[in-house]
Amino acid sequence: MNRILIGSGNNEIQTINNDKVIIDIKKDVNVLIENDDFNKYVFNVYSSSVNVFCKSEYKDNATYEININKGYVSFNNLSYSSNDVQIDVNLNKENSSVSICNSVIAKHDVTHKIKIMHNCKNTYSKVNNNGITKEDGSIFFDVLSLAPKKCKNCKIYQDSKIISFNDTNKNQINPVLLIDEYDVEAKHSAFIGNFNFNDLFYLMSRGLNKKQAKELLTKGLLIGTLDLCFDEKEMLKKKLDDDWR
């Protein structure tokens, strides 16, 4: 699969219109968005399988619009910044699927809004938000999935988890499912708190001390859950070690 670096200004699928990067994808591709000068991206996907990775480490408020006209998009976001993120997905044709893995490290108050529109029957969406808060940080995950009438056989999943490493009480998860059709499968879960005692006990029973166990769980939560290749994950874990410990 080709790998396209967005922001390099040198590839055929990308156009820039009023500070908005428009990416038209008609064949299978991996897309990497690194730190660049743009804050709004529009993906138009036509009958293809796409893996997107946004390393929006120090980016200003970023907006991503993903229009899927049949095909599959795996959208991965790792956010270190203190700015907000908005992800809007439109599943416009049958057999359109999206999987969003959104990992957030918050040292300040951040809001991540995700909106999934199931505009057609036989569409699939899965949102997996994971965040940790440290220092003065708090996270608000606002997740909205809509399935209007006649959108039969849609599958809608939302999972959000925030682990607090600080004493904030401002963390919030707002999982909303608006479904106006009977024949839809949907579920959501939301968790705010600390790491599970049983998980920590299990890791510690193999010789990891509490700090090591928490670090391993943090890397697993934020990076292990992303749909990326092994090498990419290893680089991110090393960066997490270097930058954020």
Partner: peptide, 18 residues
């Protein structure tokens, strides 16, 4: 328990290093 995101290999290598 199952631990999402942490691979067996990572876990065991960390445990051995520890």
């Amino acid at each position: 328990p199952y631990i999402d995101g942490v691979t067996n290999a990572d876990f065991l290598r960390t445990a051995l290093s520890s």
